[in-house]
């Protein structure tokens, strides 16, 4: 059984008189521990696919299964539970909470999960050190550069070691050194903890780390290569 199964997913957007096919009868499956890069031009449906798998967006039709459990028909509350305990998100626009410091942003998910404060602090410190932000943990997102915010977002996504990380352009604002360091962390998590990574990216340097590359165009998979 695949960890993630997508069956005949359709998601259309109306834009003026034309219909944009973000997902057009797309079916794909991912094994636990997969390290997948989704590539394709803007509007090809990469982000929509990640949102559908993460239960963030409603589909027009199709089924999404995580660990065999169908999630596209779950309530908002049940989906929130799945996201909280199984999925880590890295958004293109960072989506940090502006009124919380870097450390509080990283600790936020753990706090909602009910992890004790001491354990949260230790885990947040460790991950902030890994992403090179220790010493900046008391800064608000507005006081950090784009790259630093990106690293806080990554730290928040992986700190509680979810089973699945959905990352949308995670390296968009990182220099080469930071990108390499981040990808090494992703790879380590993938290899050591069998965390599944689905990364939507345009960055060919990121694609080099992937075990499987999927290319999308107009909501459909046009190429699917496994190394």
């Amino acid at each position: 059984m695949s960890a993630i199964e997508c069956l005949d997913l359709c998601k259309y957007f109306q834009q003026g008189d034309s219909v944009i096919k973000a997902l057009d009868h797309l079916s794909v499956a991912f094994e636990q521990g997969a390290f997948v890069c989704l590539s394709g031009p803007s509007g090809s449906g990469k982000t929509t696919l990640l949102n559908a798998i993460g239960g963030l967006d409603e589909l027009d039709s199709g089924e999404v299964r995580l660990d065999g459990q169908r999630i596209d028909n779950l309530s908002k509350s049940e989906l929130a539970d799945i996201r909280l305990h199984k999925i880590g998100f890295v958004f293109q626009a960072y989506n940090l909470i502006p009124v919380l410091t870097a450390r509080e942003n990283v600790e936020f998910v753990m706090q909602v999960q009910g992890i004790p404060a001491q354990e949260r602090h230790e885990k947040a410190n460790a991950i902030l050190q890994e992403v090179g932000l220790l010493g900046m943990e008391h800064r608000l997102p507005a006081q950090l550069s784009g790259g630093q915010q990106q690293r806080v977002a990554v730290a928040r996504a992986i700190v509680s070691k979810p089973k699945l990380v959905l990352a949308d352009e995670p390296t968009a604002n990182l220099d080469t050194r930071s990108m390499e360091k981040l990808m090494e962390q992703f790879v380590a998590l993938n290899q050591n903890h069998k965390v599944t990574f689905l990364i939507a990216t345009h960055d060919t340097r990121v694609m080099a780390y992937a075990k499987r590359q999927i290319k999308m165009v107009d909501g459909q998979i046009v190429a699917d290569e496994t190394r």
């Binding site: 963030l56 998100f89 989506n95 940090l96 909470i97 009124v99």
Partner: peptide, 14 residues
């Protein structure tokens, strides 16, 4: 927007 972010991180709407 903030509510959307924290909902995406797993906080229930209620």
């Amino acid at each position: 927007r903030e509510f959307g972010v924290i909902m995406s991180l797993g906080v229930k709407p209620r």
